[in-house]
Nucleic acid binder design. Structure first.
Lengths: 209, 209
DNA sequence: CGAAAACGGTATCAAAAGTTACACAACTCA
DNA sequence: TGAGTTGTGTAACTTTTGATACCGTTTTCG
């Protein structure tokens, strides 16, 4: 891939051409396979990733369970990596590709340089932090105040909207992981949704109606 | 209060003297009473606050309920104000003083200037965002995975530690609000804690043992 | 092909948490 | 002082959710 192609792929938020130029100069373009681990807990971060294509699932691993933090999608960077790198700390979370992905990585020392040179970089950072916070706040409210059936429906609708498809490809088990509950509960509620005509169930996916 | 006193009160994180000097030059020092509203939803932010003394409770108001986001304490700034101001958006949350407080405010346009001039300012921002995120993540995990009795105990212990006192001044009703449940549930569990000898209950406060 | 793994349906039971209702004590303030 | 407000205790009940167990089907992969 040549420079022109790559430039075209960088998020539009980077309005300053000097910044885009520096990214190209100092950055490295890598590709990863589905299920590849990009970052693991305890790892020292000497690079900052921006996802060009694909998706990275960022989560924490506790004793028995897994906490999903967010997905890093096209044009986004990983907030956890960013702050860990900024303070020279090791990562407290994992990042795993959910599909074959293309990632742009560059040395973290540049973060500080760019903050002092490019407003659009700062805007990107603040935007990143704020929108992750808002996302988490949504999840928090949902977990704290909504009954599970509503949470499931909300999840399905969100996925449907995001994927531009009423076919949501996920197993009951994985849906249970996403929502922090168990498979049996999910199956039970989905079944009742089906009886109410809200969805149609298939092996491996759910059709939203 | 003269310049020297004020300087001494600024958070140590601002290592650059130029920054401290600018803060003093452009900032304004205000005092508020308990229960004064500093920021309300829909308000356009033209200033950024840093709390010097006291505490601001930041929350969102939904139809029926209230969501506590965080408390802004000494040396801290309000993440929500910061990002709202940065993008010239109105506030989505409220900020109310929980006690008489002293706040340092300065024009938000400076945020952008300082980002481009002072590393310690950038570090302060990233630290602010990251620690609020971590806090919220803790709450999320707690709500998602811990039974209420454990959450109550955790709350009491945290408060006790923070206030340097085993006497936690809060009504059962307000504790219920904090934890997103109802008064009856709180009373029930506290009573069982008392029978287990973990606490002693009084009107208006709880003694942790 | 055949075994193992992944997927989903369903029943039963148990536990956790919310709901409603009522009583009384303590505090506050006109 | 006395009426209204706030704070707390407690019983009885319902609802929601989780836990366990067992089943059959589909898919995967050596």
């Amino acid at each position: 891939m040549d420079t022109i192609d790559l430039l075209a792929k960088l998020p539009g938020a980077f309005t300053e051409s000097g910044l885009r130029q520096e990214m190209l100069t100092h950055g490295k373009f890598i590709t990863v396979d589905k299920d590849d681990t990009i970052v693991r807990e305890g790892q020292f971060l000497d690079f900052l990733p921006i996802v060009i294509k694909g998706e990275i699932r960022v989560f924490q691993q506790k004793e028995d369970r897994e906490i999903l933090l967010y997905y890093v999608r096209e044009g986004q960077t990983c907030m956890m990596s960013l702050s860990a790198a900024y303070f020279s700390q090791t990562s407290t979370s994992y990042g795993v590709a959910t599909k074959p992905s293309e990632i742009f990585v560059f040395p973290t020392r540049l973060v500080n340089d760019w903050q002092l040179k490019y407003s659009s970089w700062n805007a990107f950072l603040i935007q990143t932090f704020r929108s992750r916070y808002d996302e988490l706040l949504d999840s928090f409210e949902s977990v704290a105040f909504d009954p599970i059936d509503k949470r499931i429906l909300t999840y399905l609708k969100n996925r449907s909207q995001k994927d531009h498809s009423s076919k949501i490809v996920i197993s009951h088990q994985n849906l249970a992981y996403e929502l922090g509950t168990t498979r049996v509960v999910i199956s039970r509620i989905l079944k009742s949704f089906e009886q109410q005509g809200k969805v149609k169930l298939f092996r491996g996916y759910i059709q939203l109606k």
